[in-house]
């Protein structure tokens, strides 16, 4: 049946709370308010204030508390209202969660899950529209996931809670109301591999997050022009699943990388470098990137839309990369 992206996340949280009494949800306005984006609406009534914990506006404080509680045997789901505010907790994530296993010579693992709402699309301007995936994806010790589909919005959390390492899950504000079909029994998913969301032979589009559905729509339109694009959803931004990418490159020989984050030092830059290092001689055209324009995100809708890749641009650039094939 069709459900929203929001409902998929909520179902996962509910299932996690039901199946393990060590799981609790911790974050700003997750309880009485029902979640800033209504993701956890009703869970306080169902599970009570010990398991749905409203916190004050203390990002470093409650993210750190989640990390400590995870070390001490609990399984907290820490919700940072938006990725923008997560910078206030970056010390806890980068200096504590990511380092403790190493500094302690393997004694202390940190099984915390930190969810954050990410990205643009609601005219929230420059301080509420960040795509900070590249910051987190650059930190050894973290596992970094991006839920670009409804299946992952539900399934990633369940698997992440079983992982002995700190896992960051990026969810996307602009997708919350989006409906897609998701089987009732859709459950935990793998969190180690990228997914080939569409098979193709002419071009590989590598993307994640909000780029996944856009790229799939673009690929369907490209098919009408005779171009078969393969769409890879990275899903796991750290550690990257290089094998799936390289395999596809060896098949299609042409690559377009799509992401909302700023172009410089982004995930696409990393993927491009790896393709160049390991599959350079497979390429029949330069690897191309379609990324966020390097500007603080503006408020007006038309400028906001122009700040990140859109379906039309994906189609246009795919055609340009594949021009020799089309001719």
């Amino acid at each position: 049946m069709n459900i929203t992206y929001r409902e998929a996340i909520k179902q996962a949280i509910r299932e996690a709370l039901r199946s393990d009494e060590k799981v609790f949800l911790l974050g700003e306005d997750v309880g009485r308010y029902g979640g800033a984006f209504a993701v956890s609406k009703g869970l306080l009534q169902e599970f009570g204030p010990e398991r749905i914990m409203d916190t004050p506006l203390s990002e470093a404080g409650f993210v750190g508390a989640g990390i400590g509680a995870a070390i001490a045997g609990m399984r907290p789901i820490v919700e940072v209202m938006t990725v923008n505010f997560s910078l206030l907790a970056l010390d806890q994530i980068a200096n504590n969660a990511a380092t403790l296993l190493h500094m302690s010579g393997g004694q202390i693992n940190v099984p915390v899950v930190i969810r954050m709402s990410c990205g643009i699309g609601r005219q929230l301007a420059a301080q509420h529209s960040h795509s900070w995936e590249p910051i987190y994806a650059g930190i050894p010790g973290l596992k970094v996931l991006s839920a670009g589909t409804h299946e992952d919005a539900r399934g990633m959390l369940l698997t992440a809670l079983k992982d002995p390492n700190p896992v960051i899950i990026f969810e996307y504000t602009s997708m919350l109301n989006l409906e897609r079909e998701l089987p009732d029994n859709a459950g935990a998913v793998d969190i180690t591999r990228a997914a080939v969301r569409r098979q193709g032979t002419d071009l590989t589009i590598v993307t994640y997050g909000t780029g996944v559905y856009k790229a799939l729509d673009a690929a369907n339109e490209l098919a009408a022009t005779g171009l078969e694009a393969e769409v890879i959803d990275l899903r796991v931004l750290r550690p990257l699943d290089e094998a799936t990418i390289l395999e596809s490159v060896k098949k299609t020989h042409r690559v377009l990388l799509v992401e909302d984050a700023w172009r410089s030092v982004g995930i696409a830059a990393e993927v491009s470098a790896r393709i160049t290092e390991k599959a350079f001689y497979e390429l029949e055209a330069p690897v191309q990137r379609l990324c966020g324009v390097e500007v603080p995100i503006p408020y007006p809708k038309h400028l906001e839309d122009a700040s990140v890749p859109q379906k039309e641009q994906i189609i246009e650039m795919a055609k340009s990369i594949c021009a020799p094939v089309l001719n």
Binding site: A60, G61, F62, V63, G64, A65, G66, I67, G68, A69, A70, I71, A72, G73, M74, P76, D91, Q92, N95, N96, L100, M103, S104, G105, Q107, I108
Partner: peptide
Amino acid sequence: FDVSRRFYGGNAIVAGHLPLALGFALA
């Protein structure tokens, strides 16, 4: 660090371990 003695650092970001301590006490 020595987990067997519940000795959790050795933390070198000034005040960075105070939030961690909250988590231990909360758990």
